[in-house]
């Protein structure tokens, strides 16, 4: 039971990170119907930006708590801003010229952009792992190890709390943004019919750019959380995280924000529980197999809108 609880906590944490990345995939897919393969690498750039900022600002665990919190918030905001520029630039250079062109072209530029970003970071930041001393330490003990102290102590670390809380806040914020603001309305209009939206005065290019900016900012948050949670990053983290997050987006029903979050959570949980109870090696197989099975039986994903075949 204790073991289960601990895995649950770990799974939710991992799932939150996947979910944050998945939102970027799902928003972009929803609005222009393409798989933004470079999104995982945007996440990686977010993570690196945060690491550089942390070193630059001299943030350490030795700071007073209030200072540390403020510093981390600053790092988060700055990382979001800088990463958003990257997201914007990738869209502008690699996707916008191909708008309205045929479907595989942006997919190839996306893969190209992903390769280029990865290798750019490898060159500019070096191929070595970058370990970061834990900044947020300490935890709550949810169980005390039983009367004889033999049972597992279930721990909920402050980092995990931070990740889950930040994710929840951002999710709520973005849902409000999409549902209540004119930007969100423009986005949904572009999703339905880009040409009509343009005729009605929606600035389609700007709306799409903003979607990429928002996706990149969320990926940066995920990058910061990843850095805090695992404490080590390299130029290659974007690929696997990206594929998993995309899997999460498809699993939840691509184009749906709650779906992306749900998919992220599920993928995180499946991975953690599979590693916890079966084998660590095959955790990716488990995640991908679940994806395949879900898609075969529910082709539109868990929360996606069914695609109506018009005859």
């Amino acid at each position: 039971m204790e073991y289960f609880l601990q895995q649950l906590i770990n799974g939710v944490t991992l799932g939150s990170i996947y979910g944050l990345i998945a939102i970027g995939y799902t928003m972009v897919y929803g609005i222009i119907g393409m798989i933004n393969f470079a999104h995982g690498d945007i996440f990686m750039i977010g993570s690196f930006t945060a690491l550089i900022l942390i070193v630059l600002l001299g943030v350490t665990a030795a700071m007073p708590v209030a200072m540390l919190v403020m510093a981390l918030v600053l790092v988060l905001v700055l990382a979001m801003a800088f990463t958003a520029v990257w997201g914007w630039a990738v869209e502008r250079v690699a996707y916008r010229p191909l708008r309205g062109s045929f479907r595989l072209a942006p997919l190839i530029t996306a893969i190209g952009a992903s390769i280029a970003l990865q290798n750019f970071v490898q060159i500019s930041q070096g191929a070595r792992n970058k370990p970061l001393q834990p900044l947020i330490s300490g935890n709550f003990k949810l169980t005390d190890g039983g009367p004889d102290g033999s049972a597992l102590i279930v721990q909920l670390s402050y980092v995990q709390i931070t990740i889950i809380v930040v994710t929840l806040l951002l999710m709520a914020g973005f849902t409000l943004l999409i549902n209540r603001t004119s930007l969100g309305r423009a986005q949904r209009a572009c999703e339905q019919d880009r040409k009509m939206a343009a005729l009605l005065g929606v600035n389609v290019d700007r709306t799409i750019s903003l979607t990429f900016v928002m996706g990149a900012a969320l990926a940066a948050v995920a990058g910061v959380m990843f850095l805090l949670y695992y404490g080590v990053i390299d130029f290659y983290i974007g690929f696997l995280a990206g594929v998993k997050a995309f899997t999460a987006a498809v699993l939840g029903g691509i184009g749906s924000l709650p779906g992306a979050m749900l998919g992220g959570l599920l993928i995180g949980l499946i991975e953690t529980f599979w590693s916890g109870y079966f084998s660590v090696e095959y955790k990716d197989v488990a995640a991908f197999s679940i994806l395949a099975i879900v898609l075969i039986f529910m082709p539109e994903g868990l929360l996606g809108k069914p695609e109506v075949e018009k005859v």
Binding site: V93, A94, P97, L98, S101, F102, A105, P106, I108, T109, I111, G112, A113, S114, I115, A116, L117, Q118, N119, F120, Q122, I123
Partner: peptide, 18 residues
Amino acid sequence: RMLVFGLLMVVIMVWKPR
């Protein structure tokens, strides 16, 4: 060269999407 490879993929596709 891997960086150039990736950039080349982008450039060729933008130049000739088909």
